[in-house]
Design a protein around this nucleic acid. Sequence first.
DNA 1: GCCGTTTTCGGCCCGACTGTTTTCAGTCG
Length: 575
Amino acid sequence: MSIHNAEIAQIFNEYADLLEIQGANQYRVRAYRTAARNIADLSQSMADMVAQGEDLSELPGIGKDLADKIADIVTTGQLPQLEELEKEVPVGLLDLTRLAGLGPKRTGALYRELGITSLGQLEAAAKEQRIRELPGFGAKTEKAILAEIERRGGLRVEKRFKLSAAQRLARPLLDYLKKAKGVKRVEAAGSYRRRKETVGDLDILVTSSQGSEVMERLAEYEAVERVISQGSTRSTVVLRFGLQVDVRAVPEEDYGAALHYFTGAKAHTVAIRKMGVNKGLKINEYGVFRGEKRVAGRTEEEVYAQVGLPYIEPELREDRGEIEAARKGELPELVKLEDIRGDLHAHTRATEGRASLEEMARAAKERGYEYLAITDHSKRLSMAHGLDEKRLGEQIKQIDRLNEKLGGFIILKGIEVDIMEDGSLDLADNILKELDLLVCSVHHKFNLPQDKQTERIIRAISHSPTFTILGHPTGRLIGEREPYDVDLEKVMKAARECGCVLEVNAQPERLDLNDIHGKIARGMGVMVAISTDAHSVKDLDFMPFGVYQARRGWLGPGDVLNTRGWKELKKLLRR
DNA sequence: GCCGTTTTCGGCCCGACTGTTTTCAGTCG
């Protein structure tokens, strides 16, 4: 049972939280947090690196001390120093810091002065008005604490919105703010602009000569549930459904600097600011300054140019190597929606879909595509009326007839065939051979041990009788179902050997492969297909979400199968 | 605790809002 990077990151984060409550040096705390983030983002397994005797202190943000601690965690499963610290600082205090408005300092004070170690004790103390007596606290803070505890039982639930859901809430709000007096531009920044698969809160940048007007208008928006803070340049509100929105207003000439700052990711922004410091520059949301003199800030390009870098696309700004790549002039060219020439995974009414074969084909043609692969389910998925050999044979004939009347648009014959527990496929080879391509997917037995699951998938893709795309390769549903336990690097190696392509499924709740896996695939020279897995005509419009995820994975048009026009694709399918 | 095209020691990104204070600490992003 080897330790995952995410578990190491979690241990370091808890250690940092407890250190902070204890009042430790803030830079020491930060070192643990930085290390945790870097480890979580890493594509190689720490456990493997330790096993192979690699020098962990070569990694960014990890020195000798943390390298030793990681080795301890990997070999024993725990960190002795954390267990020691837990004896000194009650872990219940971590709940307190999750309360809005209570950070490590105040939590530490509550513990030292009043012996509070739990939310229950905190509530009691607040009701007895003992908190307002403490230095640095007052009646208002005490009331705010009680109000926070009352709201949803007190704990600030970590709620993230899928990008598609955030988009539905954001678009009307952006339009609304555009109508405020003095407003020039309204732009969603933050993780929304970086097209992250989920958005924690929505960051909106407004350029305006009259910030207060914008903030007034925001507070009056019909979907605003409560206003957390409101100033003349910055406000925070919570919308219905609990989406927190931060709006920041700056003058038009500061647009680029503000957009850069507000887009983040924080680690990226900090890294750029540090580069600025090294060049004697101060970079903030108002511009780039040399001493008193403002030297840039109208556009993001200007900001990057000041630190000697080319423009970096928002999807790459995660401090995962993009700055180094930019410095070396090795930024990838990213795939664009316009590059996509067809969709390689779609369902019809024959199984789970809601539209007919012809409706789906015509809708794809209207979207400017050259081809659409029809990939209905196979027979094991009886709930979805999966196709058996006979019905698939009929569909093949139907596609042949339809292709003759579609004026050059091509419907590809395919199937989303189930991968059985033993790695065999759910339909006979002789019918599968008649198809242009297979999407092979796991739809059951999600909880096999890693080696079995990996073996199962590799067997399926290596024995597949025709061109193969591995559908939604980890099976995860964002926020609902964890990925199944599979060694993707082994799968990718096998995929590379047998010419199998991995899917980036564009369904907003799947987005599977994710960004980190996409980047690994690119590094290993494995191609992907960005597919909508459409169950209706409307679902074909999920394509942008798949493209965003691919861009976040550094993938370029050359890495994506369905950027090929029909002529070229045809050759690739025949291999 | 990490790190070095100024540095192996002394730095470590920068600013808004709130509440508790009379100039600032804490929190947050």
